[in-house]
Design a protein around this nucleic acid. Structure first.
Lengths: 183, 183
DNA sequence: AGAGCCATGTAAGAGGTTACATGATTAG
DNA sequence: CTAATCATGTAACCTCTTACATGGCTCT
């Protein structure tokens, strides 16, 4: 779940804590985070409660006169550890590059820029492994007897699509150096 | 929802109808459909009931001695119209190529092969449009003042990833000719 | 005799979307 | 005076996942 880790990441940038409405702004369309991940108020408040129950954030109440009191959330040590763990781990599937990996990249850059190169390198290995596996599946299928020609050519097309998507992600990764270096 | 249209597609290949267990086999891992779309029994039976309520399939009961009676589902004229409509329509977002478009391709090939080339051509146009739009967004962002450098370079990376994924899908589409021609 | 197939489902829960409810404050 | 902003949430409703319930039949 990238959304909850994104919340942890935002709190990691704000040692004084933040309340729901503060955080919500970062998930709007004109913010960089909002370009990859939209979070409606309902879900945001839901995640905050869940994170509180898990112990990754801690809430304190701030009275506000006549407005509803603010719940100010701060990252706990457990939450920080979880964030670090998550940020160091590449995503397994190519389709998760689009969302999960971008969120990782975003917060790695902002909260621990020295880890960005390692994250990219690990992700690179993972994608390379996936390409190898796809090549193996392709070879196995081509060699498989008793297969309808239409079925085979369709499944080959499926594997080829995955390969092309994974290779594209890999090439994109290799051009991320500006982010990695001056982040 | 590709799952429900996949069910319609399977029934379109079986004018005598099929029952849930029959259909379930097509969504197993070793079948070509299963390579793109897994459907557990629970969801399959749920979709069948929903399609029945919508009027896209019609059920008749077949007694089976001591086993539970079979619900045999047949495609209705409405269901067939819906399937045709869906099969002729490209997907809007690149990320839906992986699932929805592949399902469309699979069933277009098997139930109306003469439409495959048009489907591919329409999808090609859609992807080309998306690439143009991404280029525009990229230009707009590069020209935008008052933007944090880190924010800008991150959002540029997001747009570049989308472009690379969309271009990869486009190149893959252009090599689908074997399926289109001898399907 | 036991494993796996046939054939249908239900139940519980996680995760998400959309819309609404509340009510003061501030900006135009 | 109206609209947007601040600040919190709830409610209803989907979708999907995982696991289980039932019980005869067929194969080894």
């Amino acid at each position: 779940m990238p959304a909850e880790h994104a919340i942890l990441g935002l709190l990691a940038q704000n040692p004084d804590g933040a309340h729901g409405y503060d955080l919500a702004r970062h998930f709007a369309g004109d913010e960089p985070l909002g370009a990859i991940l939209r979070l409606e108020p309902g879900m945001l408040y839901h995640h905050l409660k869940k994170l509180d129950k898990t112990g990754w954030v801690a809430a304190t109440v701030e009275q506000q006169g006549l407005r509803p009191p603010r719940q100010v959330y701060r990252l706990t040590p457990d939450g920080e550890a979880e964030l670090r763990r998550w940020l160091s781990e590449p995503v397994e599937r190519t389709r998760d590059i689009r969302l999960d990996f971008l969120v990782k990249l975003f917060f790695a850059q902002r909260t621990q820029p020295e880890t960005v190169e390692a994250l990219i390198a690990h992700q690179r290995e993972m994608l390379t492994r996936n390409i190898t596996s796809l090549a193996e599946q392709r070879a196995a299928l081509a060699a498989k007897p008793d297969t309808d020609d239409r079925d085979r050519s369709f499944t080959l097309a499926v594997l080829d699509l995955r390969r092309s998507q994974t290779e594209a992600a890999l090439e994109w990764l290799d051009q991320l150096s500006p982010i990695a270096s001056n982040g």
